[in-house]
Simulated scan of single mutants.
Amino acid sequence: MEARFPRPSVEKEFAQATGRADTNGQTDREAFHAVLSQRENRYLVRQLCWVLTIQGLETYLLQPRDPVDYDSLVEATRPAPSPLDIDAVIGLRGPLAPPEMCNGLMIPIVAFDQIYSFDREALIGAIPRPEKTAAKEFKAAAEELFDRVMQLTDNAGATDDHRALNYLAMRYPAIYTTVADAYARNASLTGVEVRPSRLSGTRKIVNVICSFTSRNNDFTEKFFVRVDVTEEFPFLVNKMSPYYDR
Rank of each mutant, 00 (worst) to 15 (best):
V227T: 02
D218R: 12
E232K: 10
N217Q: 00
Y244M: 10
E232M: 09
E221N: 14
Y243P: 04
N217F: 01
F235E: 06
V227Q: 03
R215C: 06
K239F: 07
M240D: 07
S214K: 00
N217W: 01
V227S: 02
D228P: 05
F219M: 12
S241W: 03
V227K: 03
V237S: 00
P234Q: 04
M240L: 10
Y243S: 13
P242Y: 14
S214D: 07
V229Q: 01
K239H: 09
F233A: 13
D218S: 12
N216C: 04
D228C: 01
P242C: 14
R215N: 07
D228S: 06
K239M: 07
K222V: 11
F235I: 08
R215E: 07
S241I: 14
E232T: 14
D218N: 10
S241Q: 14
P234G: 02
T230C: 03
K239R: 13
L236H: 11
R226F: 01
V225D: 00
R215G: 02
S214V: 02
V237K: 01
Y244L: 13
M240W: 07
F233R: 04
F219R: 12
V227M: 05
Y244Q: 14
Y243N: 09
S241R: 08
N216E: 07
V225L: 02
N216D: 08
Y243G: 11
N217H: 05
L236Q: 13
N217V: 03
V229A: 05
E232I: 11
D218F: 06
P242M: 14
F223Q: 11
P234I: 04
D218L: 08
R215V: 01
L236G: 11
R215A: 09
E231G: 08
Y243I: 11
N217I: 02
E221G: 14
F223W: 09
K222A: 15
S214R: 07
V225M: 04
K222R: 15
M240P: 04
L236R: 15
N238H: 03
E232R: 12
R215K: 03
R226Q: 07
R215S: 08
F223S: 12
P242V: 15
F224T: 09
E232Q: 09
N217E: 04
Y244E: 11
P234H: 00
E221V: 14
V229I: 08
F223R: 13
R215I: 09
S214Q: 04
N216S: 09
Y243V: 12
E232Y: 03
F223H: 12
F233K: 06
V229Y: 00
P234Y: 00
S214N: 04
M240C: 08
S214L: 05
E231T: 14
L236N: 09
V227W: 00
S241V: 15
D228M: 04
E221H: 12
F224W: 03
V225N: 01
F235N: 13
Y243K: 11
S241P: 02
E232A: 11
V225Y: 01
F223M: 10
V225G: 01
L236A: 13
T220C: 05
N216P: 00
M240N: 06
M240S: 10
R215T: 10
Y244P: 02
F235D: 10
T220V: 08
F224R: 00
Y244I: 15
M240Y: 05
V229P: 04
N238D: 03
E231L: 10
V225T: 02
F223A: 13
P242F: 14
L236S: 11
